[in-house]
Write a protein that binds this DNA or RNA. Structure first.
Lengths: 234, 234
DNA sequence: CAATATACGGAACGCTGTTCCGTTTGCCAA
DNA sequence: TTGGCAAACGGAACAGCGTTCCGTATATTG
């Protein structure tokens, strides 16, 4: 499975007057240099010690003071987003492509989730950070949701429209569930997150029997309709 | 759904010479009193601020110094285990009971997992602590596994033997997956862990079509047997 | 009522994230 | 080229955490 590209941002100051807002008074040269250095250092530090590596370590790697980090990236989430921006973007863009190239919408969904899982699982502590409700990670949360939620929703809708999965599962739940299942995937050799995710994805498939039941239920007056199998677990 | 009992240990020093090992020279009265006070304080603090409440807060609640906590409970995990021991025990004991009383093994499994999820979801941060690979939580991990893994395995085996679920899913994976799905269930109102767990449990069901395919595959020479639907996601 | 082992309290240490300000440095205009 | 100033830097300093350690207090026992 081809993984998403993993090079580092090089278009840091590419917002040179995009036409809207205040003129953006152009940053100093050393500032731009440091920002790039910091991204490299952070990327390396994340690989070595996870995304929750001490700020001082990143600063030391980059050869700057801690103040410089906070000036460029007010929260840790901003730094994480900057480091993984390209990969998240690639994952988002892969969604529509998979929908077009895959046999069925469900296959596309499964493949896309695979991509997402591969990404999460190979970044120490990213999954953990994503579910953390620490205020420092709010930006991270927001960014991932902003980029990936629409993609996931579209795949989900397509699969539901094709009658392959049961409707009513929203993208947020799925994304969050998948993210949750990835927690600890790297540190625990006994645990295989991919397998559990596959089970989850399998769980939302609509099977012949359920589909039939669902149709007869739809024909009857709505209300106490008995939802499919997994509801017996509630 | 009846939840597990939630009273606090009162048989702290019930190991008064159980016959084995060194004579256990009987603790001082104030020590026993403090241990109980600490359990109460910790229980209250966990409810108020989650299981990762600062040690000092627990100490303040109990009216003791932090040293006293560490003397009684060397690691935070020991304290957590002590507080929730009864409930975990009850959950473990409910397994065989459910297997006997429920219609099918799969129903028993689903109900038991419900019990487990209800327990996890109502304890702030417990799920998070369970997957944390922080060394401080090793005891917690070990205890939960020790008590719940055999129960889960037995339910799983029963369901597999009845042909209701696909074999080859081991109890550790399931327990861990369910635990993972419970992370953040309390703090994120948009997320419904129970629903995702239900999906996961549904995912391991063996359906008519798959069962048939599985049988023909078993009849053929083993090796490149194509596993059921969810494998297309791998 | 001593003597002593046991347990207690909380100061102290080390490691975090985060802020803040004196100092340095790039930039531009004179 | 140079002077001045805004921008950026570095790291000391602060606050909050877990954990350790030891002088002090106290329950127990003879």
């Amino acid at each position: 499975m081809a993984d998403i590209d993993s090079d580092i941002d090089s278009d840091i100051d590419s917002d040179i007057d995009s036409g809207s807002g205040p003129p953006a008074p152009r940053k100093r040269a050393d500032a731009r240099r440091n920002e790039e250095t910091l991204l490299d250092a952070a990327s390396a530090a994340f690989v070595a010690s996870g995304v929750d590596v001490p700020v001082r370590d990143i600063a030391a790697r980059a050869g700057v003071g801690v103040g410089t980090i906070y000036r460029h990236f007010p929260t840790r989430a901003d730094l994480i987003v900057a480091v993984y921006r390209h990969q998240v973007e690639a994952c988002a863009e892969a969604g529509p492509a998979l929908l077009a190239s895959s046999g069925t919408p469900h296959a596309a969904l499964a493949r896309w989730i695979d991509l997402f899982v591969d990404f999460l699982v190979t970044k120490h502590g990213l999954a953990e950070a994503l579910q953390s409700n620490d205020a420092a990670f709010a930006t991270l949360h927001a960014y991932f949701l902003d980029r990936l939620l629409p993609v996931c929703a579209r795949l989900l809708d397509a699969a539901a429209a094709a009658g392959e999965i049961l409707p009513g599962v929203d993208a947020y739940h799925l994304l969050r569930g998948v993210g949750n299942l990835c927690v600890g995937a790297e540190t625990d050799p006994r645990y295989d997150a991919r397998r559990m995710v596959a089970l989850l994805v399998a769980g939302l498939r609509l099977h012949r029997r359920e589909a039939a039941r669902r149709e007869t239920a739809a024909a009857r007056p709505a209300g106490a309709s008995s939802p499919p199998e997994q509801s017996q677990a509630m």
